[in-house]
Each structure stands twice: as C-alpha cells, then as structure tokens.
Amino acid sequence: MTDELLNLTLHVWRQPGPNRPGGFQTYPARGITTHMSFLEMLDVVNEELIEKGDEPIAFDYDCREGICGTCGMVVNGVAHGPQRLTTVCQLHMRQFKDGEEIWLEPWRAHGFPVVKDLVVDRSAFDRIIQAGGYVSIRTGSASEANEIPIPKKIADQAMDAAECIGCGACVAACPNASASLFTAAKISHLSLLPQGQAERDDRAAKMVAQMDAEGFGACTNHGECEAVCPKGVSIQWIARMNRELVRSIIKS
C-alpha cells in the first residue's frame, strides 16, 4: 500500500439552518493520505476548523461501514461520489487526484429539507414506511417458521429488494427528485413473500399515496437512482411497484 499525499480544494455548501440562505465556502484540505476515507478527510478539515475557532462542516454519518444509510452527500454532482455501489463513508481518497477541486452539496429535494450544511431531514422515508411498509403480525402470534416454504429464488429476490439502506441517494440523483426506488424496494420486498400477501394491495396504495403526499417527483424512467444506489437496488422494482398499484386499485 503506497501512501501519497493529496492537497485538495473543497467547495462546501454551508447553510446555518432550515430555510435559511446557504452558499458555497471554499476550504483547503492539505496532507490527505490516499488511505483516508472521504469522511475521515472531512474529519481532518473539521478538526482544523474547530482549532481555528470556526464551526465545523455538519454532515451525517454513523456506522461508517456502508450499512446504516446515515451518510450521504453529493460529491462533484454525483450522490455518494464517483465510486459505484459505494456509500460516501466507504469512499476512499485514492479515488481522487492531487490538486482536485471537490464540490460538496446536500441531497437537494423538496421532500428532504436541509437541517444544516450537508445534513438533511429524511423523515419522509419513515412516514412512507409507516403508511404500510410492514406485515401486521402481533408479537408472539407467529406460527412455526418453517411452516411456509419459500422457493429460494423468491427469497433471494425479496432480499435483493430488502437491501435498501434508506440513504436517499435515489431521490438526490433523480432529475425529478422522485422517491420511487426507495418506495418500490419496500413494496416489492413484502409483495414477493407469502407473509406479505394479506396486506399486499392495501400496502401499495397507501405507500404510494404517502410518497406522493411528501412532495417527491414522479418517475420518468431516467435510471439515475439505480446508478447511484449503493446497494444496486434495481429499477425493475419500480415497474413492479407500478404493477402492484394498478393491481391493488383494480381489485379494490
């Protein structure tokens, strides 16, 4: 592993709070090693800012392992940055060249109001799940787990859809700021499984209604969401969601 040092220029979106005006600030990032993660690079910049007495750049993160879905920012116009299938917390500086200029912006969507700097409020996603993204099973009332066999192929497909980490990059990248991929992933996961059948139609109708109510855009099939999704969730689930919705309304 060869260490080389990078000197970079960051143009960072700074916004003191919700519906307050924001703008870009430029910061140097010096002596960055290629083995740092992108967020560690920001840590370094922030520690300098604090010691200088300035406010550090606010950005969200928790696990830093690419699984909790907390982190997320638009790096040079791409949600989660240049590396495919990678959250920004798993992005490493060897992806960048010495002297590069890096533009950092928050997820921009009407449904994701900015909290501060690069931090946004994604509670709309929670409300979409609350609208019906579950199986109504009372604790303790479940029957024996192996009672209903599920073909491996179906279980694997359900898992593909269930991998979504709720990061919101799909919304950030979609030219229409549509939440279709996120919503479709959950609708598909549950509609594929026998356990999800009882509430299948209701679920699709309620979740789509909530998705619309949150003010996200409509899907016009750009495929940007799938391209930036760190878990590679496929837009075939959007087609499935559309099918599920039509089905639910015809059957209602």
Partner: peptide, 11 residues
Amino acid sequence: QAVAQGVPFAR
C-alpha cells in the same frame, strides 16, 4: 417472529 415479519432469511 422474524420470518412472519418478512425477514428474508437465507433458504
């Protein structure tokens, strides 16, 4: 409980 909730365990 988990299976009933739709947790997609390996099969």
